[in-house]
C-alpha cells in the first residue's frame, strides 16, 4: 500500500507544477456552469417553483457537482494513456515490476484527479455561492458523507474507464467503448437528476453506473436524506466491488493473451 501512496503523491506533485495550464483547462467547466445557470434561470419562471421536486438553485447545484465529478476525471486522457500502455508494450514491461498495473494506474491517475477535484470544487462552490446566494443546508456529517460518496464515485469511474480501455488487449481500437460510456454519463447523467426521465427509463438509470458515479454524490449535496444515503452507499459499494473485479479480470486475461502471443 505504501508504494501506491508514493505513486499517488509523486503524480500529485508533478501535476501541481502545471497549475496554470490546469486552470485554463477549467474554462470549459466554468462556461458549462454559466450556460446552465442561464438556462435554468430562464426555464424556472420563479425561483420558488419546483420542477420534478427540484428548485432552481438545486438544479444548478446538481450540475455544478456532477460536472466537477466528470471534469476532474479527465477520462479521455486517462483512457488514451491506458490504451497506449497496452499497445506500446509498456504493460508488458510493467508485469515484472513489484506492483500491480491496475493499482498503479489507479493511484497514478487519482493523484491528478485530486488536484483537479480540489481546484474545481473551489471554483464550483464559489460560482454557486455567488450566483445562488449561499450553500444548501449541510452539516459537518453530511459534508463528510458527500465527500465519501464523491471519493467512491471517482474510484468506481476510474475502474470502469480502465476496464473499457483495457479492451485494447483484445481489439485494435477500444476508444469507441470509452466514447459510448462518456456520452451516456454526459447526456443522461450530468444534466438532469433521474427524476426528470420518463417512468419506464427510471429503473434502468437507477441500476446503471450513473446512480453511483454521478447522481449519488450530487443528490446528497443538493438534498441530503438518510434513505437516499443508504441506497447510494449500497449502490456504490456494489459497483466498487463489481468494477474492481471486472477490471482485474480483464487485465489478467489480457496479460495471459500477451504471454501466449509473446507481446
Amino acid at each position: 500500500m505504501k508504494k501506491y501512496l508514493y505513486i499517488y503523491k509523486t503524480k500529485l506533485m508533478t501535476d501541481l507544477q502545471y497549475t496554470f495550464d490546469l486552470l485554463l483547462g477549467f474554462v470549459g467547466y466554468i462556461i458549462h456552469i454559466f450556460i446552465f445557470l442561464n438556462l435554468w434561470q430562464y426555464i424556472y419562471s420563479n425561483p420558488k417553483e419546483l420542477i420534478n421536486g427540484y428548485s432552481m438553485s438545486q438544479m444548478i447545484w446538481y450540475v455544478i457537482i456532477t460536472e466537477i465529478l466528470w471534469t476532474c476525471l479527465s477520462g479521455r486522457a486517462f483512457s488514451k494513456d491506458v490504451s497506449n500502455d497496452v499497445k506500446s508494450g509498456n504493460i508488458a514491461y510493467n508485469i515484472n515490476k513489484p506492483y500491480n498495473y491496475v493499482e498503479y494506474a489507479l493511484f497514478n491517475h487519482l493523484g491528478g484527479a485530486t488536484i483537479r477535484f480540489i481546484l474545481l470544487t473551489i471554483i464550483g462552490l464559489t460560482i454557486g455561492f455567488v450566483f445562488l446566494n449561499g450553500f444548501p443546508p449541510l452539516g459537518i456529517l453530511q459534508i463528510l458523507a458527500v465527500l465519501l460518496s464523491s471519493f467512491l464515485a471517482t474510484i468506481i469511474s476510474i475502474f470502469l474507464i480502465m476496464s473499457l480501455s483495457l479492451i485494447s488487449f483484445f481489439i485494435e481500437d477500444a476508444s469507441p467503448f470509452y466514447w459510448i460510456y462518456s456520452k451516456f454519463i454526459l447526456v443522461v447523467g450530468t444534466i438532469f437528476p433521474i427524476e426528470f426521465f420518463p417512468e419506464v427509463i427510471k429503473p434502468f438509470i437507477k441500476f446503471s453506473p450513473i446512480y453511483a458515479v454521478s447522481y449519488g454524490p450530487a443528490k446528497l449535496f443538493v438534498d441530503f436524506n438518510m434513505t437516499d444515503f443508504i441506497s447510494i452507499m449500497i449502490s456504490q459499494v456494489a459497483y466498487l466491488i463489481i468494477s474492481f473485479i471486472i477490471c482485474h479480470l480483464i487485465y489478467k486475461k489480457g496479460v495471459k493473451k500477451l504471454n501466449v502471443n509473446g507481446g
Binding site: L24, G25, V27, G28, I31, I35, N38, L39, Y42
Partner: peptide
C-alpha cells in the same frame, strides 16, 4: 480554449443569456 468557446455556446439559444 478560446476556439472551444463558440462551440460551447452555439448550441444554446441566445435568448437565455
Amino acid at each position: 480554449t478560446m476556439n472551444g468557446l463558440p462551440t460551447s455556446f452555439a448550441t444554446y439559444p441566445d435568448g437565455i443569456f
